[in-house]
Write a protein that binds this DNA or RNA. Structure first.
Length: 419
RNA sequence: GUGGAUAUAGCUCAGUUGGUUAGAGCGCUUGGUUGUGGCCCAGGAGGUCGCCGGUUCAAAUCCGGUUAUCCACCCCA
């Protein structure tokens, strides 16, 4: 069949389902602004280096999921696979490097060349926030609290929050060494992915789901033991603040996350209503290195997947089906009446009344059915007799009542009939 | 990249061990007294059964290939 399907992993979003999206976006704007965040819109593609450096060369995302292409000048560009790197690149133009705090959020499409599955698209949409420029456990905790606040407003209940600490660079050197020694002893019996990870990203082994690797991961030494007291204290403070804010969480020592820029607090929010791809949001504290920058940009943030938030809402039967509100549908009989209908529709729209005028010569019954199908609140009827008297009829569809109005009536007066 | 499932009307799906003009519900459309919607009733339109090839007197049905979609692995939002 010659149906037209969009490219794999992409989807058209039709007017009937768009109110879900408005809801997620409007709620985000409302909640995030309560915490002093403003929207930042960055380009949808960047120099490839921004992501390579920003996310880390060894990450899965950079290695095999990016949509990279050459522009006409032969420069390597990449469709953004996530939002943080672009935001940091943009903020270089501000004074964040001097210790000034910036609070921004973004909403938009992201692109990863993965095999589509439930809750996983190649073009998907994220809402993310970044609190950049300062390091404080209070901010890590507030970031998580804001995410929970957002979810609450979306009526998404039953989500599980997992948190962990990744330490900072100086904590990781001894920790990575320890893990390497530990896993090195049994790497021969572990999965192929882990063999690679042992060399370029030992931490990710802790995240491995292969059954063959489980027994080794279970009894792996606790990396936190290698962390400095300062780092441990930082995480403890984050947990304490979350407790005081009444945020429920579970510490998961195996939570690593896939991007290299994370330090200190990392977290993931999962929901049982989603299937295998059950993370609806994730984030943490980060240090992002950008091309030609000596100092990394520091911040804390999260990103939530809009498609997944919608899946969670649907699983919870959160109703959100505002239909297109049509104030008026104009039924006309004959060419002369139709001309009058178009004239009237123009006037009504300028008075902020949403109007559709029927343009086909259908029977009145058919036109009335159309009005009903479109959920019109009122119907204007213009037939031959109305034309003769220079009037039109306004019918209130829910009441079933109707009134006759002269075309000469002042528009402000006419408007009242559509209230 | 690897595995599994599916592919019939705009949508959701039936279609028996191959057998005449391929079905239902919803939707769409026309009408049910001249110009009034929803409910109800009666008609109507709409499908090269994903595509290509094979087996057969005969294929939506069996076989092979191909493409697409979905699900899972993986990874993450």
């Amino acid at each position: 069949m010659a149906k037209s399907t969009p490219p794999p992993g992409t989807a058209d979003i039709f007017p009937e389902e768009i109110s879900r999206w408005y809801n997620l976006e409007d709620t985000a704007r409302k909640v995030f602004s309560l915490y002093g965040f403003g929207e930042l819109r960055t380009p949808i593609f960047e120099y490839t280096e921004v992501f390579k450096r920003g996310l880390g060369d060894a990450t899965e995302v950079v290695q095999k999921e990016m949509y990279t292409f050459e522009d006409r000048g032969g420069r390597s560009m990449t469709l953004r696979p996530e939002g943080t790197a672009s935001v940091m690149r943009a903020l270089l133009n501000t004074d964040v490097l001097n210790g000034n705090e910036k609070r921004v959020y973004y909403i938009g499409p992201m692109f990863r060349g993965e095999r589509p599955a439930a809750g996983r698209r190649r073009q998907f949409h994220q809402i993310g926030v970044e609190n950049v420029g300062r390091v404080a456990p209070e901010l890590d905790a507030e970031n998580i609290a804001m995410l929970m606040h957002y979810l609450e407003e979306l009526k998404i209940t039953g989500a599980e929050l997992l948190i962990n600490t990744r330490g900072v660079e100086k904590d990781r050197i001894p920790a990575a060494k320890m893990l390497k020694e530990y896993f090195g002893a049994s790497i021969d019996t572990m999965c192929d992915d882990c063999k690679v990870r042992l060399e370029n990203n030992v931490w990710r082994i802790l995240d491995c789901k292969q059954t063959a690797c489980q027994e080794f991961i279970e009894s792996a030494p606790d990396v936190v033991e290698c962390f400095t007291e300062e780092t441990k204290e930082y995480f403890k403070r984050v947990c304490e603040i979350l407790d005081s804010l009444g945020v429920k969480y579970t510490v998961d020592k195996r939570l690593v996350r896939g991007l290299d820029y994370y330090v200190h607090t990392v977290f993931e929010l999962t929901h049982p209503g989603l299937g295998a791809q059950n993370a609806i949001a994730g984030g943490g504290r980060y240090e992002v290195h950008l091309p030609q920058q000596k100092k990394p940009l520091i911040g804390v943030g999260f990103a939530a997947g809009l498609e997944r938030l919608i899946m969670a809402q649907e699983a919870l039967r959160v109703i959100n089906d505002e239909r297109l509100a049509l104030d008026c549908y104009i039924v006309s009989m004959g060419d002369a009446a139709r001309a009058k209908a178009l004239e009237l529709s123009g006037k009504l729209r300028k008075a902020n009344i949403a109007v559709i005028a029927e343009v086909e010569s259908k029977s009145m019954k058919a036109q009335m059915r159309s009005a009903n199908r479109l959920n019109a609140k009122h119907v204007v009827i213009i037939g031959e007799s109305e034309l003769e008297d220079n009037v039109f009829v306004v019918k209130n569809m829910s009441e079933g009542t109707q009134e006759t109005i002269s075309f000469d009536t002042d528009i402000n007066e006419i408007t009242k009939y559509f209230a």
